[in-house]
């Protein structure tokens, strides 16, 4: 059945002209037209790739993306609201039940950890080292949003669509988080939707601070489905420990990441081969496959993070 796929045009065309015509090949004119269509389509694809490959701001594909988001944003939104039956179906799978139980446990653990986090290490260190004035998680202005589209593993990229866009004050390079920790940052916006690059993507790097020692480092995604992260410290002599928690240390101007958002917990540490330092494996607090409602940090606190001491710290 497949034997003709790899062979060039001439053979099938010749065959069909010969005395034992293959019913399949069609007339030479058909074959020629078919080839022309294929070549044209492939050329169109290459043109697109070349036009869009530089990822510059003026990519001619951008208007197309805008238009597509304008049409498909509402569609995805509707489809997401109508997914209750799918959710029920999913819950029937035993595997999912296991995950659910695990998720419950993790959620509870996370809550405990978050509470611990806000009350102990981070607050104590900050309080001691920075004249007891910093609040742990400054009250940023948040815009709630719902995840309406998720990138599949076949695309390799870890991105989700949320149903808030420029109309809601969401712009690129804003921090996205949920109740348990950091989700990612906004990389692309349209009127009514925004695309969020999750921290588990290989293109994502976040500045992370070890809670216990206040050491600085970088958290980068591995591109794995579970969203596992790598953590490298700037100071090669510093060593993360298993169980250490990592929070963002924030970027200048609070973009793309605001400070003090929990990222994850260190699960294992391996020494770097051939160089100083060590790499830690970090399990993120946020399960990338289970993101639903998120918050986009759309505004900074009234003043950069040192307003009052009335936080949850004590």
């Amino acid at each position: 059945m497949l034997k003709d796929l790899g062979t060039p045009t001439t053979r099938s065309a010749f065959r069909s002209a010969g005395e034992t015509p293959l019913r399949s090949a069609g007339t030479p004119r058909d074959v020629r037209r078919r080839r022309t269509v294929l070549v044209l389509v492939i050329l169109a694809c290459f043109t697109l790739i070349v036009l869009d490959a530089r990822r510059s701001a003026g990519s001619p594909v951008e208007p197309l993306r805008e238009a597509a988001a304008g049409v498909f944003g509402p569609l995805e939104s509707t489809a997401t609201s109508a997914r209750q039956p799918v959710d029920n179906l999913r819950d029937r799978f035993a595997e999912m039940d296991r995950l659910k139980a695990e998720n419950e446990k993790l959620k509870k653990d996370n809550e405990d950890l978050t509470r611990e986090l806000t009350t102990s290490d981070y607050a104590r260190n900050r309080a001691q080292e920075l004249d007891k004035l910093l609040k742990v998680a400054p009250a940023f202005t948040m815009t709630p949003a719902r995840v309406i589209g998720i990138g599949s593993a076949q695309t390799f990229s870890h991105t989700v669509t949320i149903d808030a866009g420029t109309a809601d004050g969401v712009h690129t390079d804003m921090t996205v988080l949920n109740g348990t920790g950091l989700v990612g940052r906004v990389v692309r916006t349209t009127q009514g939707t925004a695309t969020v690059l999750l921290i588990g993507d290989r293109n994502s790097t976040v500045g992370g601070r070890l809670n216990a020692s206040m050491a600085l480092g970088f958290v980068s995604g591995r591109g794995e489905v579970g969203g596992t992260l790598d953590y490298k410290l700037i100071d090669p002599k510093a060593r993360p420990k298993v169980g250490d928690r990592i929070v963002t240390w924030g970027s200048s101007g609070n973009a793309p990441y605001v400070p003090g958002v929990p990222i994850g917990v260190v699960t294992s540490v391996t020494a770097n081969e051939g160089s100083l330092g060590s790499t830690a494996t970090v399990k993120p607090y946020v399960d990338p496959t289970r993101i639903d409602t998120v918050g986009v940090v759309t505004g900074p606190p009234a003043r950069p993070p040192r307003p009052q001491i009335t936080g949850k710290g004590n």
């Binding site: 694809c45 290459f46 594909v61 238009a67 988001a69 939707t193």
Partner: peptide
């Protein structure tokens, strides 16, 4: 082009 795609179009 439909979000959440973030790779090179085409």
């Amino acid at each position: 082009v439909v979000p959440p795609a973030d790779h090179t179009a085409g």
